[in-house]
C-alpha cells in the first residue's frame, strides 16, 4: 500500500492571496465578457446597417456615429456647438439639478422618516407633488425661473428629488428597533439616536436612491434642454431631430449613456468607501 500523496499546507496569507487571485480572475472574465457583449452588439448593428437590413436614414451605423464623434470634436455644425461644449453645458445642468436634489431630498426624507410630526406636515404635499411628471413643470418654470440654468436645473432637480426623498425615508424607517432601544438604554437623546444610529443605518438605501436619482437626472436632460438651450447634449439630440440626422441623435444618446455609466461607476466607488464598514 502506497502512502497518500502529501498535501501542501497553505499559510493563511497564501489562502487569502489565492482567493483574491481567483476573485480577480473572475472579475477579469466578467469584464471581458461584457466587452465582448458590447462588441458583438456593435458588430451585428454595423453588419445590419451595411447589409441594408436597416435603413441608415433611420438608424445610423456605429462606424458613422464614430466618424461623427470625431468630426463633432471640432465642428460645431449643424447644432452650433462642438461636442465638448455640449457635454459641459449638459453636465452643468444635470449636476446642478442632481446635487440640489441630494442636498434637499435626503435630509427631507430622513427627517420625514424619523420625526412623525414633520412627516405629517410635509408628506401630504410631497405625495401631491411626487407623481407630477417633471416635464409638466416646464411652462411654469419659464415664468418662475426664466430660461437660464436655474430653470433647467429645476426640471432635473424634480426628477432626481423624488427617489432621494423616498429612499432616505424608507432607509431610516428600517432602522433596527434593537439598535434604537439599545441607544435609548444608554441614555442617548432622540436627536443623538437619529444622528448616530438612524442616519448610518439608512445609508445603503440612501445610496440606492442617489443611484436612481443620477439616472433620472440624465434621463430628464433632453426635456430640460427642450425648455430653452443653445448648447447641450439634449439640445444636440433635438437639433438632430430638427434636421433629420439620426447619427446626431444617436451620438447624443451614446454620449449621455457613457457619461451616465461613468458617473454610476464613480458613485459605486464612493459608496464602497463610505459604506465599507457595513460590508
Amino acid at each position: 500500500m502506497g502512502s497518500a500523496p502529501e498535501t501542501k499546507k497553505l499559510t493563511q496569507e497564501q489562502r487569502i492571496a489565492m482567493v483574491q487571485e481567483k476573485k480577480r480572475r473572475t472579475q477579469r472574465l466578467y469584464l471581458t465578457l461584457s466587452i465582448i457583449g458590447i462588441l458583438v452588439f456593435l458588430l451585428i448593428w454595423e453588419i445590419a446597417s451595411d447589409a441594408g437590413f436597416v435603413n441608415s436614414r433611420y438608424l445610423a451605423a456605429p462606424s458613422t456615429i464614430f466618424k461623427l464623434f470625431i468630426t463633432k470634436l471640432t465642428d460645431p455644425n449643424p447644432d452650433g456647438a462642438v461636442l465638448g461644449v455640449n457635454i459641459l453645458a449638459s453636465l452643468q445642468v444635470s449636476l446642478t439639478g442632481f446635487f440640489l436634489a441630494i442636498i434637499v431630498g435626503i435630509p427631507l426624507g430622513l427627517l420625514m422618516g424619523w420625526y412623525g410630526g414633520f412627516e405629517s406636515f410635509v408628506r401630504p404635499i410631497f405625495e401631491l407633488v411626487r407623481p407630477i411628471p417633471p416635464v409638466s413643470w416646464i411652462p411654469l418654470t419659464i415664468v418662475w425661473l426664466g430660461i437660464g440654468l436655474p430653470a433647467k436645473a429645476f426640471i432635473v432637480f424634480f426628477s432626481a428629488f423624488v427617489p432621494c426623498v423616498i429612499n432616505a425615508y424608507t432607509g431610516i424607517k428600517q432602522t433596527s428597533p434593537v439598535l434604537i432601544n439599545f441607544a435609548k438604554t444608554c441614555g442617548a437623546s432622540n436627536f443623538t439616536i437619529f444622528w448616530k444610529v438612524g442616519i448610518p443605518s439608512s445609508l445603503t438605501m440612501v445610496f440606492a436612491g442617489v443611484r436612481v436619482a443620477l439616472g433620472n437626472a440624465w434621463a430628464t436632460l433632453v426635456a430640460a434642454e427642450m425648455l430653452a438651450a443653445s448648447s447641450g447634449l439634449g439640445y444636440m439630440i433635438l437639433m438632430g431631430r430638427q434636421f433629420a440626422r439620426p447619427d446626431l441623435i444617436l451620438l447624443g444618446i451614446v454620449v449621455i449613456g457613457i457619461i451616465g455609466v461613468t458617473f454610476t461607476a464613480i458613485l459605486g466607488r464612493v459608496e464602497n468607501r463610505v459604506l465599507g464598514w457595513k460590508k
Partner: peptide, 20 residues
C-alpha cells in the same frame, strides 16, 4: 447676438416673463 432655441409658444411666454 445670442440665440436661444425655444418653440414659439414657450418663447412668447418667456418673453412676457422678461426673458430675452
Amino acid at each position: 447676438i445670442e440665440s436661444v432655441n425655444m418653440d414659439i409658444a414657450s418663447a412668447l411666454t418667456a418673453f412676457k416673463g422678461g426673458q430675452g
